[in-house]
């Protein structure tokens, strides 16, 4: 039977061309700013002028004096938030995936809710909350790293829970039942069977939690204080007054470090799977 309703050739070619164009534009929208940043970071100019008068690497030397403190705060906050959200989130993921109880739906919804609330509103709320506690108790909360970590845990936790849940959804509970029938008490079942089965999900969860914390801006805006500020915010403040290659150098170093770390990680867990 002839396929007379198939697309005529020119139309099919047009469609293929259109798809290719979309792919190229999409890739450009992601890639071009990063490439431009790389280019800008070696400009020997303190304002952006094209073409530059020369090229230099001296901006890279200024990163640590300018942003060292903020970078440190960012890393500390992100690592602490990842650790705490793993401690709270992995058990929560197991609980949701392996137990059936009343209110399970509500619990799942609550745990994922921070993903759907605008960060700028959460940030304001947490700041106001902290100020109120300060007034009542006299302990200094606002502007402390502790508050920042607590706030970051709120937005990293859902990612850990979500990815752990997904990891367990694909894993047959029969293995756990087998372990229990072989005489393992519940906590050993979790340690020896459930957690290893979730390995991919836990690593992915930690990875996403780190990203979410490290690059959070909207919520953290309300939680910084002089001396306690994260990298994205101090970059933003810097950009307010000068657009110069220093920020570009920061971006390049970040890309290089993260790229290296991801390549290493890819040997442990294929990134292509983790991201899903």
């Amino acid at each position: 039977m002839p396929t007379d309703t198939a697309l005529p050739e020119p139309f099919a070619r047009l469609q293929r061309g259109l798809v290719a164009t979309l792919v190229i534009i999409g890739a450009a929208i992601i890639g071009v700013p990063l490439l431009l940043t790389l280019y800008l970071s070696v400009f020997d100019e303190s304002i952006i002028v094209f073409p530059p008068h020369g090229y230099t690497l001296h901006w890279y030397g200024r990163i640590l004096p300018e942003f060292g403190g903020a970078l440190r705060t960012s890393l500390e906050t992100a690592l602490a938030a990842v650790a705490i959200s793993l401690l709270a989130g992995v058990p929560a993921g197991i609980g949701l995936a392996r137990h059936r109880f009343r209110g399970r739906g509500t619990a799942a919804m609550l745990l994922l809710a921070p993903l759907t609330v605008p960060g700028i509103a959460i940030g304001l709320g947490i700041y106001v909350f902290a100020v109120m506690i300060e007034e009542r108790t006299g302990t200094a909360l606002s502007g402390s790293v502790g508050l920042m970590v607590a706030a970051h845990v709120l937005i990293t936790l859902p990612w850990v829970v979500r990815l752990c849940l997904a990891a367990l959804a694909n894993h047959d509970p029969a293995a756990e039942e087998a372990a229990a029938s072989l005489g393992a008490p519940p906590w050993r079942v979790i340690w020896r069977v459930t957690l290893p089965a979730m390995r991919g999900g836990i690593i992915a969860g930690a990875l996403f939690a780190f990203i979410v914390s490290f690059e959070n801006l909207e919520m953290t805006l309300f939680l910084t204080a002089p001396g306690v500020t994260t990298l994205p915010i101090s970059v933003l403040q810097y950009l307010q007054y000068h657009i110069d290659p220093l920020v570009a150098a920061v971006a390049v170093v970040q890309v290089a470090l993260v790229g290296g770390a991801l390549l290493l990680l890819d040997r442990l867990v294929p990134v292509a799977r983790v991201a899903a």
Partner: peptide, 9 residues
């Protein structure tokens, strides 16, 4: 991983 602020550059 690079963050929205830095990518705005």
């Amino acid at each position: 991983f690079v963050g929205s602020t830095v990518r705005m550059v």
